[in-house]
């Protein structure tokens, strides 16, 4: 990178923050919390710089490739973690959230940096599609982490485990609220992402929409699950509370994993017209883009 900032910079900072959170399980030296926040802030500055650099080099970034999409999701989740730290300074939420952030960065490391075919469509629809799905995925991940913390806290309380000096979690009431809001937010965002995705494809020159696209299929599955879960939650009051809502968000995470796997495997061809995708031999990446109309778009109307 021209700025000298690479993925190692912010990955290292987040790893240090996670190590400091883990250190709190054994020892809580003075300044540990401050050092954790400092490491996160430095990491986020480097992360922002890296994303801005990517956007400068490839105008279709920051959400047009699998690599950029994963990094943008990791960045948003890091921001959520800082929010958790501010709201619940004594809780060890980093132990649950930061591994997910690092997981997304690891996924970014091994994923394609080539633009997804969808982003050859009108830029605004493509960007909206990417942003909604990214935020929806982050909402599912936040719900998953909150659900996990809920189940751990609930288990401890049921077993009369006294308050821990080393590992503290937010209250069940707060986690339940986060769970419910994440689920509702994820449903709306994923639905909007899906609709903008359809519109993106329709706006392309050949305008053919492929339901057999693995990413579309898995995303449809996840959206169906989220809508069903949300309806269940609205219709059945017990599903809005306690462990049930936590289980719903955990299931949402499983659907997200399936969608992400499809996205990682077939994402580069995602949205490419049927004939062009076939011409690219099922592993289109850069070649698919060339086949779909030359160099990636640099923004502006088609």
């Amino acid at each position: 990178m021209t700025s000298g900032i690479n993925m190692l910079c912010f990955t290292g900072c987040y790893a240090i923050a996670l190590a400091l959170e883990a250190l709190g399980l054994w020892k809580r030296p003075p300044g540990r919390r401050l050092a954790t926040v400092a490491a996160m802030l430095i990491g986020m500055v480097a992360h922002t710089w890296y994303l801005a650099d990517r956007a400068g080099q490839a105008p279709w970034a920051p959400l047009a490739s699998q690599h950029d999409w994963c990094l943008a999701a990791a960045w948003t989740l890091s921001l959520v973690y800082l929010g958790f730290v501010l709201y619940y300074p004594r809780a060890s939420s980093g132990l649950f959230l930061l591994p997910v952030v690092l997981g997304l960065i690891a996924a970014a490391r091994w994923s394609s940096r080539e633009p997804i075919a969808t982003f050859q469509a009108p830029r605004v629809w493509g960007q909206l599609h990417g942003v909604f799905l990214m935020l929806g995925a982050v909402a599912v991940l936040v719900g998953f982490v909150a659900g996990l913390m809920y189940l751990v806290q609930s288990h401890w309380l049921k077993h009369k485990r006294p308050i821990g000096e080393r590992l503290r979690l937010p209250s069940l009431e707060w986690l339940e609220r986060i769970n419910g809001r994440s689920l509702a937010g994820a449903t709306i965002l994923i639905a909007m992402g899906f609709v903008t995705g359809v519109l993106t494809h329709l706006a392309q020159r050949d305008g053919e929409f492929r339901w057999s696209d693995p990413v579309v299929l898995s995303l449809s599955g996840m959206l169906s699950w989220l809508v069903a879960a949300e309806c269940f939650r609205l219709a059945y009051p017990a599903a809005r509370r306690g462990r049930k809502v936590a289980y719903l968000t955990l299931a949402g995470f499983v659907f997200l994993l399936i969608t992400l796997s499809a996205f990682m495997r077939d994402g580069a061809a995602h949205g490419a017209p049927r004939t062009k995708a076939k011409a690219a031999g099922g592993a289109p990446k850069a070649s698919a883009i060339a086949a779909a109309g030359g160099a990636p778009r640099t923004g502006g109307p088609p």
Partner: peptide, 24 residues
């Protein structure tokens, strides 16, 4: 951490358990 460990039953009930269930 001398002061952090509560030792009366009502204080333990509220500060160590009830606050982990309810936010307010």
């Amino acid at each position: 951490r001398l002061h952090r460990h509560r030792v009366s039953i009502p204080s333990v009930a509220i500060a160590d358990f009830a606050t982990r269930v309810f936010e307010r």
